[in-house]
């Protein structure tokens, strides 16, 4: 079963959605990396679910980022999308930024989420266990936080860009614009949501008690971008939440360990 890309008209503009499979609906919210195209995880999940993976405005082909100033706007966009896709209360899984968005949705509109899965979620500030910087560091350094295995093709590409930067004296002009354009786009979109406060909402933690759906927190054991304390905080603040780990994966676990992550998600959803 493979997911197919389609375009739907949303209030903010045209939105790219990947959908496929059959079963109960399962919405996948991507991270700041904008994963979706060719993401094996979606195909894995589509074996047992009706998988719906929208690209957030500013990512992929999706329009309308100029209308989204913050997480509040992002949640309203998601509600709009759910209505247009006739999703009453799907299961929602989100990675990192997507996990934060899912948590914001579930605290405000708990009735729109049947089951919640937060994977290496952003969204909280924990003193002494801060989320590392994503807006100013070079791709080589970032790759170390994103992948447990530095020989993963995407990690290797990030190191390649780093090398090109270094050879140009730290100069972005030394890199072909088309190569960095997608990354500039996704980071610009992410900045709208998470520049300040940095990748968190100071009010989120005290609102987590509002989440009423069964909740699973997934932490990749080698995620060095978001410390374990964040997953633990989510797990302790959301009533009945379960915390599980996926080994041999770092922050972008959806890309690095699709089969293992799908197994954990399927296990939780069938339970």
């Amino acid at each position: 079963m493979t997911v197919e890309a389609q375009t739907i008209a949303a209030h903010v503009g045209s939105i790219q959605v990947r959908r496929g499979g059959s079963g109960d609906p399962l919405v996948y919210l991507h991270s700041a990396a904008g994963e979706g195209e060719g993401l094996a995880l979606l195909d894995e999940l589509a074996k047992r679910h009706d998988v719906i993976a929208p690209m957030f405005p500013g990512f992929g082909e999706s329009e309308g980022i100029e209308q989204i100033d913050d997480m509040e706007d992002a949640v309203f966009h998601l509600l709009d999308l759910f209505d247009r896709l006739e999703l009453d209360a799907p299961a929602v899984v989100g990675l990192s930024l997507g996990g934060w968005l899912a948590a914001e949705l579930a605290t405000r509109y708990p009735e729109r989420v049947s089951k919640l899965i937060l994977v290496n979620p952003a969204g909280l500030y924990i003193k002494g266990a801060e989320i590392k910087d994503i807006f100013g560091r070079g791709p080589g350094e970032m790759a170390e936080d994103m992948f447990a295995d530095q020989s993963h093709p995407m990690a290797a590409q990030m190191h390649q860009v780093e090398k090109m930067l270094a050879s140009g004296g730290g100069n972005r002009g030394a890199i072909p614009f088309e190569l960095i354009k997608p990354q500039l786009q996704t980071m610009a979109a992410t900045a709208r949501l998470g520049w300040d406060p940095y990748l968190h909402n100071p009010k989120l933690r005290k609102r987590l008690h509002r989440i009423s759906s069964p909740t699973l927190i997934v932490r990749a054991t080698e995620d060095t971008l978001i410390p374990a304390a964040h997953s633990e905080a989510y797990a302790s603040e959301i009533a009945g939440a379960k915390l599980v780990e996926v080994a041999k994966a770092a922050h972008l676990v959806s890309i690095e360990r699709p089969a293992e992550l799908a197994a954990v998600i399927n296990d939780f959803l069938s339970g």
Binding site: G136, L184, W195
Partner: peptide
């Protein structure tokens, strides 16, 4: 000096 924060200029 040349660090460009995301979204600071249009594409």
């Amino acid at each position: 000096i040349s660090i460009q924060p995301p979204g600071y200029t249009t594409l």
